[in-house]
């Protein structure tokens, strides 16, 4: 291990931990809220099972709006909301709030797109067999779209990592923040490069895992 990395070992460990917390919460939010939201977005579309123009336009507008914010401004914009939920707007816990919000918007759009790729005939067959909307979603849509859902989540996670690097602005810490403060601002370019290397390896691993899982799940 290079000396410079060893010298900052405990700070680096802390930063990696903070990144994992921020990205982890983003993934949870994406799966627990983004997946249902994206499914609803899909189902409320014209010609789909819960087709409803008002619901679709509202959800669509909401997701687009959140996604069109420059992320830094979204973080600032959400400060009052973060205070209400976490009690403070500063720190790693507080940083997870804007991250969760963007994670939900980001993944729900990818979920919608994956579901749109399921042939309509499959849904029709499900309905003709007497499936309820819930059964259509769980036993048909998610089964048929599963590799797309995994690939979408992989893409999302890579974005979450990128988003998490700027959370230094609200004291969120993380590898990106560490690289900027110790590497860039203190002119330790080597340290900065090592941090970038960690990020590159992390992204490669996630992408490899996601692609592999998606391929194994795809039997079509």
């Amino acid at each position: 291990m290079p000396d410079i990395v060893l010298e900052y070992a405990s700070e680096i460990r802390l930063a990696i931990g903070q990144t994992f917390v921020m990205v982890g919460i983003s993934i949870l939010a994406a799966v627990l809220v983004g997946l249902p939201l994206g499914t609803w977005l899909y189902l409320s579309r014209k010609g789909q099972l819960l087709s409803n123009r008002f619901v679709f336009s509202s959800l669509n507008l909401l997701v687009n709006t959140i996604r069109s914010f420059p992320f830094l401004l979204l973080v600032v914009f959400l400060i009052p909301f973060t205070r209400i939920i976490i009690g403070t707007a500063i720190g790693t816990a507080a940083a997870t709030v804007p991250l969760a919000v963007i994670a939900i918007a980001h993944y729900s759009r990818l979920v919608e797109q994956s579901l749109l790729e399921v042939p309509k005939g499959v849904i029709e067959a499900a309905v003709s067999m007497g499936a309820s909307t819930r059964e259509v979603v769980l036993k048909f849509l998610f089964v048929e779209a599963r590799s797309g859902l995994v690939l979408g989540l992989t893409t999302s996670i890579v974005s979450f990592i990128s988003y998490s690097t700027i959370m230094g602005v609200v004291g969120g810490g993380g590898i990106g923040d560490f690289a900027v403060r110790y590497g860039y601002q203190q002119f330790q370019t080597e340290l900065m490069l090592y941090m970038i290397l960690i990020m590159v390896i992390l992204v490669q691993l996630i992408q490899f895992a996601g692609t592999t899982v998606a391929r194994l799940l795809d039997k079509r």
Binding site: P119, A125, V143
Partner: peptide, 20 residues
């Protein structure tokens, strides 16, 4: 939905679930 279970349906494009 119960009645639909008494009426099977098949299609030109089969509409099977590819991942099953």
């Amino acid at each position: 939905r119960q009645i639909r279970q008494e009426m099977g349906m098949i299609f030109q494009d089969f509409n099977l679930v590819g991942n099953k």
